[in-house]
Design a protein around this nucleic acid. Structure first.
Lengths: 168, 168
DNA sequence: TTGTCTGCAAACACTTTGCACTTTT
DNA sequence: AAAAGTGCAAAGTGTTTGCAGACAA
């Protein structure tokens, strides 16, 4: 019988803070540590839920000190954060959604099509199966995306509320 | 040790042909059986690989009798084919990709980021795990998307050829 | 005839890019 | 000073929509 981990997937110990890791990444590539990049990592680290570029942008603009970053810069920096291994990107309903990927264990998602919530889970057995599948096909797996879509506990009851989006 | 099915996932017996099923679907909804819809199902059934809207459109235009369908109609009809349960839609690198879903067993994919090939596989154990995960979270699963990305056998050798796309 | 479909052009949402100017190093 | 980064506006992409005329029922 397969087992899955807890609801709350805890942090994992890592040597550097996300900010440090990002700066290391930038330096290694001859990129510069600008006000905007610093701001963005800061805000990204503050949010511990899943978010998209637009939310981050709004978040930056709602910042008390008024200092912000432009849309292109937000997109550019999100790409760098993914390259640096700090964020994981996934595409949901046509838009890119990001989540932390540094210091967090590998996991997958349940996506509620009713309220758009993402629930994380992880399963060791799943990993074993994926490895076996890849091996069978002589495929060098670099990663995977698994999203189980359906209705969460809440939306199962309050069903009639609104039309569900079917864009997975 | 997990097991996976064969390379070639065979057809499954079904009562109606895809064309029939689609017409049934249309009638049930008071929709009409037009020349364009007929053409599109025909071409979709002819192709047994994965394809996107643009390929289908080109396919229709390259047809001998010249009769074609417009881009909007292709998109609209693809949506209907998905609703009718004939096609399955997945999003890869920002574009929608379709594959047959009627009379074919449930399966998932290995996606080669080198040559963009999709390799199908299916695993009974996987299904069991997904069921267990959903149950654990009191989630009503309606479906899932699983794509393992990496390099296929071929691309593992001819590695240096070209930059790999990292859009999953 | 009636109501659906089609095709066109235009609109869309999200993301990327060209370029002159600003900043970091 | 040199090189990289930023913001703006504009261009892309893939997909969807409003609407007038065309067509299936």
């Amino acid at each position: 019988m397969p087992t899955t981990s807890d609801f709350s997937l805890g942090k994992v110990d890592v040597a550097l803070t996300p900010r440090e890791r990002f700066e290391e990444f930038l330096q290694a590539r001859g990129k510069r540590i600008t006000r905007q990049r610093r701001m963005i990592v800061e805000h990204v680290c503050a949010r511990h839920e899943h978010f998209d570029a637009e939310q981050l942008l709004a978040d930056l603009r709602g910042t008390p000190d008024g200092a912000s970053a432009s849309r292109p810069t937000v997109y550019r920096t999100l790409t760098e954060l993914v390259e640096a291994g700090l964020l994981r990107k996934m595409v949901l309903g046509g838009r890119a959604v990001y989540e932390h990927d540094y210091g967090y264990p590998q996991h997958d998602h349940l996506h509620c099509t009713g309220c758009q919530t993402l629930i994380e889970f992880s399963s060791a057995d799943l990993g074993k199966i994926l490895d076996a599948v890849a091996a069978l096909h002589q495929f060098r797996a670099q990663g995977h995306r698994l999203i189980i879509s359906g209705l969460c506990m809440n939306c199962r009851s309050n069903r009639s509320r609104s039309r569900h989006q079917d864009r997975i």
